[in-house]
C-alpha cells in the first residue's frame, strides 16, 4: 500500500494509529448525531417485521388499493385496503372499536375456505373464512401487521399467501 506524500496541509497525527481519545471523540460524534437526527423509534421493528416472511413458497400479495369510506354510523370512517395476487384478492374493511382496538371485516375472492392469521409483532390471531369468502377479526391491535392466508380443503395443495405488512 503506497504511503501518501507528506503535505503541509495535513492535520498533525493523521498517520498515527488511533488511540483511546479517538474512540472518545467518535462516541461523542455518535451521541451528537443521535440527538440531532435520530432514526424513527419504529424503524428497527419495522425492518424486522418486513424480514419475517414465512418461507420462499409464500406468495406476497400486492397492495392494490387503500381508501376511506364514510360508514353507516354517522361520522365513523371505514378504511378499506385491497390486496391482490395470482389466485386470490383480499379486501379488508377496518373500523375502530370503542376500546381503541380495530375490527377487520374481510372478503376473499374467489370465495374459498382459508385459515386467516393476523400477525402483529407480539400478537397472532386466527380465524377462518366462510363459504362466501368472508371473515371477521373482531378485536386486533393497531400498528404494523399482516395477514397470512392458508387455503385448506384441497387435498395435496397448500397455498399460502401473505399481505405485506401495513400500518393499521
Amino acid at each position: 500500500m503506497a504511503v501518501a506524500a507528506v503535505n503541509a496541509a495535513d492535520p498533525p497525527g493523521w498517520n498515527d494509529p488511533p488511540d483511546e481519545l479517538d474512540e472518545q471523540i467518535l462516541y461523542g460524534v455518535s451521541e451528537v448525531w443521535s440527538e440531532v437526527d435520530p432514526p424513527p423509534a419504529f424503524l428497527v421493528d419495522q425492518v424486522r417485521f418486513a424480514l419475517d416472511v414465512e418461507d420462499a413458497d409464500t406468495e406476497m400479495l400486492q397492495l392494490l388499493e387503500a381508501g376511506q369510506l364514510v360508514g353507516t354510523r354517522g361520522n365513523d370512517q371505514t378504511r378499506r385496503i385491497t390486496f391482490g395476487g395470482d389466485e386470490v384478492t383480499v379486501m379488508i374493511g377496518i373500523e375502530s372499536n370503542v376500546d381503541g382496538t380495530l375490527r377487520l371485516d374481510g372478503w376473499l375472492a374467489p370465495a374459498g375456505c382459508y385459515d386467516v392469521e393476523f400477525r402483529a409483532s407480539d400478537v397472532v390471531t386466527t380465524t377462518r373464512s366462510d363459504d362466501d369468502g368472508r371473515f371477521v377479526l373482531g378485536r386486533v391491535p393497531t400498528g404494523f401487521a399482516r395477514l397470512v392466508l392458508r387455503r385448506f380443503g384441497q387435498p395435496g395443495v397448500t397455498k399460502v399467501v401473505t399481505t405485506p405488512s401495513v400500518e393499521l
Partner: peptide, 11 residues
C-alpha cells in the same frame, strides 16, 4: 491509521 478526517476533527 487515524486518517485526515479524524485528525482534522481533533485539531
Amino acid at each position: 491509521t487515524r486518517g485526515r478526517c479524524l485528525a482534522k476533527l481533533r485539531q
